[in-house]
């Protein structure tokens, strides 16, 4: 007797929870004629809720020790490794060959491990003590921008998504992601990985839906500090709207997401601000002039 398959409901990921879209709408992307599933068609209100979650998670995420962040990112890699079969299946379902699916999954895991190692190193490599001429200790270090919205790659469901989001959160930002519209399955399954990886809720929030419907709200939202656009051409209005509250806009696009060009710490710095701090140095004793 054939068994009736239990179909998975793909929900969105906000604040560490998996709600359905508040709009109650869905869309049904297809691959080679077969339906991938009923996918939430997220609304502007879902986006708004996700930003609220991201904002409330940001301070404490940024304050976590770099070492702890590193462990969490590594943990994500471990969890992904543990779910190989599921992701490979989904990648195949979304049109990849078996070999390609395996390769993408493995590269995704390796990329997570690569970036996990940067968490507690980029500050050491790029922070600076600046030799000012006056009697002050002056140092510059990198801090998070805040909430960064990511329009994830359309054509790389898992590796592209990871390449976009991990460098963003490593620096203490929290993220709201619009997943690939045509290949959304891995994004939601990745959310399930995140939810079981010690990553605090709200650090990464993942929505599915139409880019066109959401893009204006993303670029105009006053509580979003940075934007990362990972599809081919940045829409003009997206760029223009940055003016409203001086959002930082980055564009990350590749025709080959497995390229090693996408493994470097500068991708982390792209979403950080430089803070410079001054403090007087007392001049008593040694060869310094007397007080």
């Amino acid at each position: 007797m054939s068994r009736l398959e239990v179909l998975k409901t793909y929900k969105i990921y906000i604040g560490g929870k998996f709600p359905r879209t508040e709009s109650g709408r869905y869309y049904t992307p297809e691959q080679n004629g077969s339906k991938l599933g009923n996918i939430c068609l997220s609304s502007r209100k879902d986006f708004r809720n996700a930003v609220v979650a991201a904002r409330s998670a940001q301070g404490s995420w940024a304050n976590r020790s770099a070492f702890n962040k590193s462990q969490i990112i590594y943990r994500i890699a471990e969890m992904l490794e543990g779910r190989r079969a599921q992701f490979i299946e989904e990648l195949i379902k979304m049109g990849a060959s078996k070999a390609k699916a395996v390769k993408e999954l493995e590269e995704s895991i390796d990329r997570l491990v690569y970036f996990a190692g940067w968490c507690d190193k980029y500050q050491q490599v790029f922070g600076s003590v600046n030799p000012v001429a006056s009697a002050h200790f002056n140092f510059s270090m990198y801090e998070a921008q805040g909430v960064v919205s990511i329009v994830a790659p359309e054509d790389s469901a898992l590796l592209g998504l990871i390449s976009a989001v991990i460098p963003v959160i490593i620096g203490g930002n929290t993220a709201v992601i619009i997943a690939s519209e045509s290949m959304p399955l891995c994004a939601i399954s990745f959310a399930e990985v995140l939810a079981t990886s010690d990553l605090p809720g709200g650090v990464v929030n993942i929505l599915t839906g139409h880019e066109k419907e959401l893009i204006d709200h993303i670029s105009k939202h006053m509580d979003v500090n940075g934007l990362l656009y990972c599809r081919e051409n940045v829409p003009l209005s997206f760029d223009e709207n940055c003016e409203i509250n001086m959002k930082r806009l980055s564009h990350l696009y590749s025709t080959n997401w497995s390229s090693e060009d996408l493994e470097n710490p500068y991708l982390i710095l792209d979403h950080l601000e430089v803070k410079t701090t001054w403090h007087p140095i007392e001049q008593i004793g040694g060869s310094a002039p007397s007080y």
Partner: peptide
């Protein structure tokens, strides 16, 4: 503990 200091080496 200071204010309005500037230096070419300081971003």
């Amino acid at each position: 503990n200071t204010y309005n200091k500037f230096d070419p080496a300081s971003p």
